[in-house]
Design a protein around this nucleic acid. Sequence first.
DNA 1: GTCTATAACCGGATAGAC
DNA 2: GTCTATCCGGTTATAGAC
Lengths: 216, 216
Amino acid sequence: MEQKESSRAGKAAGRGTYAVGDERRLRILDAAVEHFAQWGFHASSLARIAKDVGITQGGLLHHFRSKEDLLVQVLERTEQHDKEKFFDEDFSTAAECYANLVRLTEYNAARLGRTRMFNVLAAEAGDPGHPAHPYFVRRYAELVAVMSASLQRAVDSGELKEGTDVIEVAEETAAVMDGLQLQWVLDPRRFDMVSRFRAYADRLLRSITAEATGLP
Amino acid sequence: MEQKESSRAGKAAGRGTYAVGDERRLRILDAAVEHFAQWGFHASSLARIAKDVGITQGGLLHHFRSKEDLLVQVLERTEQHDKEKFFDEDFSTAAECYANLVRLTEYNAARLGRTRMFNVLAAEAGDPGHPAHPYFVRRYAELVAVMSASLQRAVDSGELKEGTDVIEVAEETAAVMDGLQLQWVLDPRRFDMVSRFRAYADRLLRSITAEATGLP
DNA sequence: GTCTATAACCGGATAGAC
DNA sequence: GTCTATCCGGTTATAGAC
């Protein structure tokens, strides 16, 4: 799965280090994000995406075998980007882990189209026949694995209460993030997603942090 | 908008008390739920829905002016049903309110297609031009209003901590329910949505309940 | 009420010219 | 690499027969 990309991905791991011929490809991917965001997968059209890039539908299909192929590569691209930005380091405390998730929420709150795309695709992918179904199943599994591992270290270190169900907490946290995004996209100006997530994280951590002081 | 329906709605408010000619209408609505669930709005087709009912696309459009009309009436129907079932009474304690939401989660967990439909439509409706956009904006507002009113009564009665931000808690709870539904639909057999929501409700209530005992 | 027929379009994918 | 042309099928909505 990864070898396919290794030949064209940036060699020096620097930003923007791509083969020259891939510039058009990247512009297509960016345009596709916007369209999948607004229309979902089924209702997006290659012709309209191509038009945004300034080429025709036929031209677009020179870079991507099919519409499905385009979707999968869009997801792979954004995922790779997110992982580098937010899941590179292993957090040693739960507080750090949630501070990082607040950062992720801020990042999403600055990208309406991208966030709406994930909302729509995650929901559409509930259909087992949807091309993004395997992606989202794997995505949640990985997210929960990374988060629960962080939380488990926090339990072991004594930061969190003994007996905390770290899987449960990780899945709940993922749910809160997704649910807040749903409400935020419906009314981005009114709904303060970042504050809401921060409030959730604070209350959650307070309720699962091992109490060290205060009691006799 | 409501007069249109008043002539054909059940007169005695009893279950199933509909005009005879509306049987076909109801079967169309039920079939539409399944299709909107699997395909969302844009990618669903009137012809396929009609086929499931056993009529043609032309025949279907005798009962519903347009595809948009069908969607709106599907949403109105399910909403009316839900309100009667889960939001009829005003709850005097927060514990009762959340017990009722657990019941709602159980109800949803027994209806995969319907729940998937709401996931997809709620996400699609993030686009302001989507026919269901106004519906979902109003839906969240009403849900938060009802829940936060319940919670406020619980604060006033001393069940919950003084100074609890009831709007914040209500919006967070809605987010958890939606987020859990998203994960559940992706893998209904593995993911236990009801347990997860119960765990969330328990932890939330513990952290916002006014402590009455235990401290000197 | 339901059908068939049709209008007027849009969808993805392929083939081949340049 | 991008275009045009084309295939073949799907879409909603309307019109009119029965």
